[in-house]
């Protein structure tokens, strides 16, 4: 009876852990190994054709102008997009937290909807909205006598168009996290503030926002990690164009890996991205520590 009983935990965790090992842990090792090789389509069919190249892939990456451009673009997305998403989702959460009832629940659903909408459907709809000639946006802007904007045809404007789209899609999930945090703030804090005669803005800046510090930190870290891997929007909307104007690091890796079948080179790129993500996340945790000492 005893030995049989001991097997149970492994029967329960077995399937999931085996799948994670096969599709998350082993791949990390594989990726690391092949990032030092010249593995490509030939190597896929015949392993003896794979050659060890040392750090060659990594060196090549940093002299590859497309890769450098993708790093620039990724930082462009992150620096503009992340603060925008956080401010928008926090504002929406504050609005939704103002009251309860059917209206507020309905609006919560409305603001959440973009985040669960399929990315291809998003691309199809926004591609139509952004269309220079027939798109709704340019039509509406024509009332303000704004000339037709080439939403997706000019490198810098295209980047901003993708950010608008990604902010629209990104509000939902962060808003829910802020909302959960807001609902966790004890009512007595607000009552005490009201008794002390604090006005709305004092309550917001002296009580609500400081108490949201943990939620804000969580949202900032996860949003930053997500935006550093900015991929779907340029992939489905612009394919990295025009003139590599919207290509991100993640899209660069995908293109090298699956369009050009340069598996080794792409794997090296993915480790550079991984290192960047770890670095940025570590910096955030460091800043947070100095922050709480006050």
């Amino acid at each position: 009876m005893k030995p049989f009983k001991k097997r149970h935990p492994f029967l329960f965790i077995g399937p999931a852990v085996a799948l994670l090992t096969l599709f998350s842990l082993i791949p990390i090792v594989v990726a690391f190994v092949i990032s030092f090789t010249d593995m490509n389509l030939k190597g896929l069919a015949d392993w003896s054709a794979i050659g060890f190249v040392g750090l060659e892939n990594y060196k090549e990456l940093f002299s590859d102008s497309t890769f450098l451009k993708s790093i620039f673009n990724t930082f462009f997305y992150v620096i503009i997009g992340v603060p925008l998403v956080i401010i928008c989702s926090l504002s929406v959460a504050l609005l939704l937290n103002y009251g309860t009832g059917k209206i507020f629940n309905t609006f919560r659903a409305v603001y959440y909807m973009p985040s669960i909408t399929n990315i291809i459907a998003v691309a199809v709809i926004w591609g139509y909205l952004y269309n220079t000639e027939y798109g709704l946006f340019n039509y509406l802007l024509s009332f303000l006598s704004v000339e037709n904007i080439p939403w997706l045809e000019e490198p810098t404007i295209a980047k901003i168009s993708l950010i608008i789209l990604a902010v629209w899609k990104g509000i939902g999930i962060n808003m829910i996290i802020f909302l959960a945090a807001l609902q966790g703030i004890p009512k007595s804090y607000y009552e005490a503030a009201e008794m002390d005669g604090a006005n709305r803005f004092q309550v917001l800046f002296q009580i609500t926002l400081p108490l949201l510090r943990y939620a804000t930190f969580f949202v900032t870290v996860t949003t930053l990690i997500g935006w550093m891997q900015f991929f779907e929007e340029p992939f489905v909307m612009t394919d990295g164009g025009p003139l590599d104007g919207t290509i991100s690091v993640a899209l660069f890796i995908y293109e090298e890996g699956f369009r050009f079948s340069e598996f080794g080179y792409a794997a090296a790129g993915s480790f550079v991205l991984f290192a960047m993500i770890i670095l940025v996340t570590m910096i955030q945790f460091k800043f947070r520590k100095t922050d709480t000492e006050y």
């Binding site: 791949p27 990390i28 794997a267 993915s270």
Partner: peptide
């Protein structure tokens, strides 16, 4: 682990 790292392997 970012999806891009495991995608190819």
């Amino acid at each position: 682990i970012p999806g891009q790292v495991t995608m190819i392997p």
